[in-house]
Amino acid sequence: MDLTRDPHYSIRDAADSVREYNHRTIDGPEPFYGEHQLINYAPPATGEAVGALYALFERLPQAVDQTAAAVRHVEEQQAIRMANGDEPSEAVSRLLRDLIDAKQSILLAQTHLRSAVQVSSNMAGHWLDDDQLEDADTNA
């Protein structure tokens, strides 16, 4: 964790990580099969992905709040001018309302993801004996 760089880079890195995940999984579930490409590895791996999504959404409300606090501070210092000519105070009001609405949506998503974690944390693949593993169709 690099606490010396500009804060927006941290959020950009998180977005890039989600984009990487999307690219890895866009063509199907095979990336969840693990190093040896075993479908039995996929249930807990997908459960881990659900848990990671929940962790991401769990941290977002604080990020939204702290971003809103920074916007309010900058406005209080009268350091904002709008390139499009809008009145800064009106624009900031709209921005803060949108951030509040976004936070509420994130909290709702958290509720659904928490439920998904409860289900997915119990998922596991079938156990295979060594001799069954040799004969198994590992690519489903």
Rank of each mutant, 00 (worst) to 15 (best):
T4W: 02
D6M: 02
H8R: 01
H8F: 03
I11H: 03
D13E: 13
D13W: 07
A15E: 10
R19L: 10
R19E: 14
R19M: 06
N22L: 12
H23Y: 13
H23M: 14
T25W: 13
P29I: 12
P31R: 13
F32D: 11
Y33N: 10
L38P: 00
Y41K: 05
A45C: 02
E48N: 09
F57R: 03
L60P: 01
P61Y: 06
Q62P: 00
Q62Y: 03
Q62K: 09
A63K: 06
A63M: 10
D65F: 02
T67G: 08
T67K: 07
A68M: 07
A68N: 02
A69G: 05
A69Y: 03
R72L: 11
E76N: 15
A79K: 11
R81L: 15
M82F: 00
D86R: 15
D86M: 08
E87V: 12
E87L: 08
R94Q: 12
L96A: 05
L99G: 01
L99R: 02
I100W: 05
D101F: 11
A102W: 02
S105W: 08
I106C: 03
L108W: 08
A109C: 10
H112N: 09
S115G: 04
V117M: 12
V117P: 01
V119C: 00
V119P: 00
N122H: 07
A124H: 12
A124P: 00
H126N: 02
D129K: 02
D129Q: 07
D130W: 00
Q132M: 09
E134M: 04
D135H: 05
A136F: 06
N139M: 13
